[in-house]
């Protein structure tokens, strides 16, 4: 069975405990405008078109590119002999994924790290992922999942017994923006949160900090109130970054110019949260 792999990134330091390999999977039920992996949102992989790599950008002779409609047509070409166009993800067989993940097995053990599944929403691929998780568990590899909690609730029990750590991304900056390709019950987040709570996995909450939303009157107070309602667990605050801006451009998706709060504001909000909980609260700098 294959998995739609966007990329596999080794030596990750912010995707759970220790040094980890993170597997990014295609497809998400949400379409957050600040998403740092916009290519992973659609269920069908979109194509990147890197105009910088297009010979038209370099303005050179290119017999290989004869017949290419770009730039005259204005639309991105579907294929490119020079590799300026490539799909966001491709199917990879489980065995190949496992082999890749096991390259750093010794490093995981030495650093108390492991493998993290992210995306996209990894729970959307529960059935396809289960054999891989079984194999990883057999090898004694620590498994983490980064999830929004927005996925069909029947998927959770398939994977939860194998998961050691859940990184729950709280999409609370705005009301959720849904990917129209996937329909979910209205109380999906609550249902999945309840399933997470009874699972044996450790939990970390993650919250992206976006100035434009935090500055809305009453927003901070409502966030603090909602955080207080959650079962206690460590909280990681991630100031918004713009590392994905070029991906939006290459996908032909409008980039929403949001920004991170100032460093002092981040620290102040972090301190506010700390007063509400005994669990560790960490401000990450990516």
């Amino acid at each position: 069975m294959s998995l739609p792999i966007v990329r596999i990134q080794r030596h990750c330091l912010h995707d759970g405990p220790g040094i980890r390999t993170t597997v990014f999977l295609q497809g998400c039920a949400l379409a957050c405008p600040w998403c740092s992996n916009p290519e992973a949102i659609p269920l069908t992989p979109p194509a990147f078109f890197d105009e910088q790599k297009c010979i038209a950008h370099i303005q050179a002779d290119a017999p290989l590119c004869a017949g290419c409609p770009f730039p005259e047509s204005g639309a991105a070409p579907r294929t490119c002999p020079l590799g300026a166009v490539h799909p966001a993800s491709s199917p990879v067989e489980q065995d190949a994924v496992l082999q890749h993940l096991m390259k750093d097995a010794a490093l995981y053990r030495d650093s108390n790290g492991g493998v993290t599944f992210s995306g996209g929403e990894p729970f959307l691929h529960a059935r396809a992922l289960r054999p891989l998780l079984e194999a990883l568990r057999e090898e004694g590899i620590h498994i983490a999942f980064e999830t929004s909690g927005f996925f069909p609730p029947e998927q959770a029990p398939i994977l939860l017994p194998f998961i050691n750590h859940l990184l729950l991304d709280l999409k609370w900056m705005t009301t959720p923006v849904f990917n129209p390709e996937i329909s979910l019950p209205p109380d999906v987040f609550e249902q999945n949160l309840a399933a997470f709570q009874v699972a044996a996995a450790e939990m970390t909450y993650r919250l992206v900090l976006i100035r434009e939303f935090l500055d809305v009157p009453g927003k901070r107070e409502s966030l603090l109130a909602r955080l207080q309602e959650l079962p206690p667990a460590p909280i990681e605050l991630l100031p918004l970054h713009h590392l994905a801006e070029s991906k939006y451009r290459q996908l032909g998706i409008p980039f929403t110019p949001l920004s991170a709060p100032t460093r002092s504001d981040q620290k102040a909000f972090c301190s506010q949260i700390k007063t509400l909980t005994d669990a560790p609260v960490r401000l990450l700098r990516l």
């Binding site: 790599k53 010979i55 370099i58 050179a60 002779d61 290119a62 017999p63 290989l64 590119c65 002999p81 020079l82 590799g83």
Partner: peptide
């Protein structure tokens, strides 16, 4: 000369 496309192709091989 006149074949920058081949040069780019050569550089971008996976």
């Amino acid at each position: 000369e006149g074949r920058e496309d081949v040069r780019q192709l050569a550089q971008r091989s996976p």
